[in-house]
Simulated assay, not measured.
Amino acid sequence: MALAALVPGALLGWAVYAAVGGSEDAKGTAGGPSASPSASVSATSRAPSSPGASPTAGPDGGKPGASPSSASPSASRPAASGPLKGKVVVIDPGHNPGNVRHTAEINRQVDIGTNRKECDTTGTATNDGYAEAAFTLDVAHRMRTLLEEQGATVTLTQDADRPFGPCVDERARIGNKAGADAVVSIHADGSGAGNRGFHVILPGSVRAGAADTRAIVEPSRELGERVAGHFVRVTGSAPSNYVGDGTGLVTREDLGGLNLSTVPKVFIECGNMRDSKDAALLTSGAWRQKAAQGISEGIVSFLRGQ
């Protein structure tokens, strides 16, 4: 594994991994097929999704998109007192359970600075039909609980509270408008069987059209390194064996959610839904809690500078 790229705050997680051996669609070169159109953080969480949920099921088995469309993100609640009081975190659950019913809308092109790209995608799913959109919402809910307990003000870009989307450009604007101290977009990959592990996607240096990431490249890298290190430590999952050269870190310049961000932001692909071993983890509520805790602890470490 390449350790040189990691900041000291992340080294502990990687050392533990070595000891045990153990979209917008962010898929791009790493991914595969999308779903068919038809400070320690405590371990409490909201109710998890059912692993057997269909691609159109909401995070708690309900029907997504039942409430009216809203241009605003899921409302923040008053933060508790804690070490992150005064900090703003935006969690961006990738895709939306309702996207599969709105393919025309999500296929429309939006400006991402470097070029134009689809508004959003349906996301992928396990071979048994557990949708990425259900996974990302479940992890986001768990993260929200953990981070609010630390005193952060937490906003979700969507909570299955709109029929589809938001589009990738709007997802970026939500974090920007919130003045977020950190934004993390939650995903799971759809690569080929045998491709395993997680990777964190960092923004490249982009200056084109409406995109200018130069000010956020370095803080986003620090955020990503800390998230990666804590994710390894808490989940025991390995960095990707198919992208990132074993570091678990990948830099991209083709993602609107990163290109249009003016605040520190990263994506995390928590595992590969199309690999049976990774799918067994992603469909486990216990493992999703670990994933949420690892990502959250990385955010806490970044915001506290520890």
Rank of each mutant, 00 (worst) to 15 (best):
A2I: 09
A4Q: 14
L6I: 13
V7Q: 08
P8V: 11
A10H: 08
L12M: 10
G13F: 00
W14Y: 10
A30E: 12
A39K: 08
S40A: 11
A43S: 15
S45H: 12
R46F: 11
G61Y: 12
S74Y: 13
A75Y: 06
R77Q: 15
A79C: 06
A80P: 02
L84K: 04
K85W: 03
G86Y: 09
K87P: 01
N96M: 05
R101Q: 15
R101E: 09
A104N: 06
A104T: 13
R108Q: 15
Q109K: 15
T114W: 07
N115W: 06
K117G: 01
E118W: 10
T121R: 13
T122S: 10
N127C: 07
G129L: 06
Y130I: 12
A131G: 15
E132S: 09
A133H: 11
A133V: 12
A133N: 14
L137P: 05
D138I: 02
V139W: 00
R142K: 15
L147H: 01
L147V: 02
E148A: 09
E148C: 05
T153F: 06
T155M: 09
L156Q: 03
D161V: 04
P166K: 02
G175L: 03
N176V: 05
V183Y: 01
V184T: 03
S185H: 08
A188T: 00
G190T: 00
S191L: 02
G194P: 04
S205Y: 12
V206T: 10
R207W: 03
G209F: 07
A210Q: 15
A211S: 09
S220V: 05
L223D: 00
G224K: 00
G224F: 00
E225S: 14
E225K: 05
G236W: 09
Y242D: 13
V243W: 03
G248I: 02
V250R: 14
T251V: 15
E253G: 07
L255T: 00
L255F: 07
L255R: 00
G257Q: 04
V263M: 07
V263N: 01
P264K: 07
G271S: 09
G271W: 00
G271A: 11
R274L: 08
S276Q: 11
K277A: 15
A279N: 01
S284Q: 11
Q289C: 08
Q289R: 14
Q289N: 15
I295V: 15
E297W: 01
I299Q: 01
F302K: 03
L303N: 01
